[in-house]
């Protein structure tokens, strides 16, 4: 499993993705590779294609919940209009170039202060990243158990 946290930590809560990646990396979870970057770009397609599964972690403007976690599929009609790609476009690129787009999820962590040049997370974002971390660790534990169970029964 690969986790990619992305965003700019010099832009306030836009740094939620890399901050989350740093927290998870520190936990050294078995079987989980962690990467952090400013944004998703084309070369992430190679790493994604080589992974068994991927979790993309980004800041979210959606503030009704502290975070959301949802599956993501390769985009059917993706375009690359910028140096930065969406998770669906990265998956699509992985499928197009390497014939493999693994099971993938997006973890969006709600933030409230974006854009301005500012270091550190807002209080709201710090609360939300705590919740997201607790959720992810639980989810990953269950995911691994299911994988182990699946392997065992197979």
């Amino acid at each position: 499993m690969l986790l990619i946290g992305y965003g700019n930590q010099g832009r306030g809560d836009d740094g939620l993705g890399p901050a989350f990646a740093a927290r998870i990396e520190a936990r050294r979870l078995a079987g989980l590779s962690v990467d952090a970057d400013y944004q998703l770009t084309v070369e992430h397609a190679l790493a994604v294609a080589e992974a068994d599964g991927v979790v993309f972690v980004d800041a979210s403007l959606e503030r009704s919940e502290p975070f959301f976690f949802a599956p993501v599929k390769p985009a059917e009609t993706a375009s690359i209009a910028s140096h930065s790609l969406s998770p669906a476009a990265v998956l699509s690129l992985a499928g197009t170039l390497y014939g493999r787009a693994p099971e993938a999820f997006v973890l969006g962590i709600s933030g409230s202060v974006f854009g301005d040049v500012r270091e550190g997370l807002s209080e709201e974002a710090r609360h939300n990243i705590d919740s997201a971390e607790a959720f992810f660790c639980q989810w990953y534990s269950e995911f691994c158990s299911e994988q182990d169970g699946g392997s065992g029964s197979g």
Binding site: V42, E43, A45, L46, S79, I80, T96, L97, Y98
Partner: peptide, 19 residues
């Protein structure tokens, strides 16, 4: 770009390796 890659996937793979 996806239309480019459908026609020339090796070009796309090389570009990624250069990146």
């Amino acid at each position: 770009i996806f239309e480019v890659l459908k026609e020339q996937p090796e070009l796309g793979r090389r570009a990624i390796l250069m990146r």
